[in-house]
Amino acid sequence: MRLDLLPVGTRAQVESVENVGSLTQRLMEMGVAPGAKVRLVRLAPLGDPLEIEVNDSLLALRKTEARLVLVRAAADRA
């Protein structure tokens, strides 16, 4: 499932990040790397960008960027 389609409040685990060069590199360096646990915190008022929690930080990214991240939603919403 793509990260940008994750329902708000859901936790998930990153499976892969599509390689588009520097953007992918930056995303992964900031923690959005395979295996990382993420949570979609909220969307901005106009629906874009979105805010995610990864490791111990809050990141804002655009939908076009979130689209590159494939995640597996956690079954239970702990």
Binding site: M30, P49, A60, L61, E65
Partner: peptide
């Protein structure tokens, strides 16, 4: 140029 990544930390 390429759209710069908008990956912004919310401190």
């Amino acid at each position: 140029g390429p759209t710069p990544p908008f990956v912004l930390e919310l401190p």
